[in-house]
């Protein structure tokens, strides 16, 4: 289970982004997880809750959106969504395909509580 190590990295990056953006506290983190990301959404969620509880004073919500696995066919140039890990073009049947979506574990956005600053 390597979700914990990746979630620690996620939170480090989120904290850094927050600091670069004025240092408000992070209310919500939205991530996208694909079927070929190598992580399990439920394990990411529990690892996230655990790390935040241990290291942050204010709570942070994690929203996970699961993305589809999409391949691009290098034979017929078509893109198609596959759902069974059979890496074949659904149109022409070629196995000469490249994954264009679905291997990501990506920070989509973060929502900050805006600190009211006076100029």
């Amino acid at each position: 289970m390597h979700e914990m190590s990746l979630v620690r990295s996620l939170i480090r990056q989120v904290d850094l982004i927050a600091a670069e953006n004025g240092g408000g506290s992070v209310r919500e983190v939205s991530v996208e997880i694909g079927p070929l990301s190598g992580v399990e959404s439920e394990l990411v969620q529990s690892a996230f809750d655990q790390v935040i509880a241990e290291s942050h004073e204010s709570p942070m919500t994690l929203t996970i959106r699961e993305t589809p696995l999409v391949v691009h066919c290098l034979q017929c140039e078509d893109d198609c969504e596959i759902d069974n890990f059979i890496f074949r073009c659904l149109r022409c049947g070629s196995g000469h395909v490249r994954v264009i979506r679905g291997d990501e574990f990506r920070i989509a956005s973060i929502t900050l509580d805006e600190r009211v600053t006076h100029a």
């Binding site: 990746l6 996620l10 982004i17 990501e104 920070i107 956005s109 973060i110 929502t111 900050l112 805006e114």
Partner: peptide, 16 residues
């Protein structure tokens, strides 16, 4: 409290 959403769209493994 006002809030602000920042779009990131970056893979968490991109630096690694």
């Amino acid at each position: 409290m006002p809030e602000r959403t920042i779009v990131i769209n970056r893979d968490i493994q991109s630096e690694r």
